[in-house]
């Protein structure tokens, strides 16, 4: 019965819990809730893809697509740290639960490093979640293939690294 003072105190105080879906606490500013990308600024350098520990990001430089499997993402924020142009960021509110698996593909403008230019109007800009299960299934098979990619693009690495260095210096 030594616990009595504590329960009596609890009885007189306001409850510590809140009526969750109706009352939501202010998020902490640094909370890693959801990954967002400003695709217009993305230079398709694939740094995020290489760093991602869960290999949920796939960048296609030629097509200009940046895609991420939000269900494989572990919200570590390494991609945000490594991005040379700071187009990736974390929102402080987490993603709402959903009943269906969505795929998240962003279409941007790839840098013109080749003669052929991809048509800009191929897909709408901005977030375009595709509700297609077959596409999601195809996505699952993708990581194995993308893993080879870093070696193929090895020549692009130094540039990205230099930019990262500058970033860090700026920080300090």
């Amino acid at each position: 019965m030594l616990f009595t003072p504590t329960v009596v105190k609890n009885l007189l105080k306001k409850p510590a819990t809140r009526k969750y879906p109706f009352e939501v606490r202010e998020p902490f500013p640094k909370y890693r809730g959801e990954l967002v990308i400003d695709i217009d600024r993305c230079i398709f350098c694939s740094s995020c893809e290489r760093k991602c520990p869960s290999q949920c990001i796939a960048v296609d430089r030629d097509k200009g697509t940046w895609q991420c499997d939000p269900y494989a993402c572990i919200y570590c924020g390494y991609c945000v740290d490594v991005c040379p142009v700071k187009c990736l960021s974390m929102k402080d509110v987490h993603r709402k639960p959903s009943t269906e698996k969505t795929e998240w593909i962003e279409q941007g403008t790839p840098p013109r490093h080749k003669k052929k230019e991809t048509p800009k109007d191929a897909a709408p800009k901005g977030t375009a979640p595709v509700l297609d299960k077959s596409a999601a299934a195809a996505e699952e098979a993708a990581p194995a293939a993308t893993e080879v990619a870093p070696e193929a693009k090895a020549e692009e690495r130094p540039a990205a690294k230099d930019k990262k260095k500058d970033e860090k210096k700026g920080k300090k």
């Binding site: 902490f28 500013p29 640094k30 909370y31 890693r32 572990i74 919200y75 570590c76 924020g77 974390m90």
Partner: peptide
């Protein structure tokens, strides 16, 4: 944890 590191647990 959440305020300083950005995540509650990990």
């Amino acid at each position: 944890n959440e305020a300083t590191a950005g995540s509650r647990v990990i």
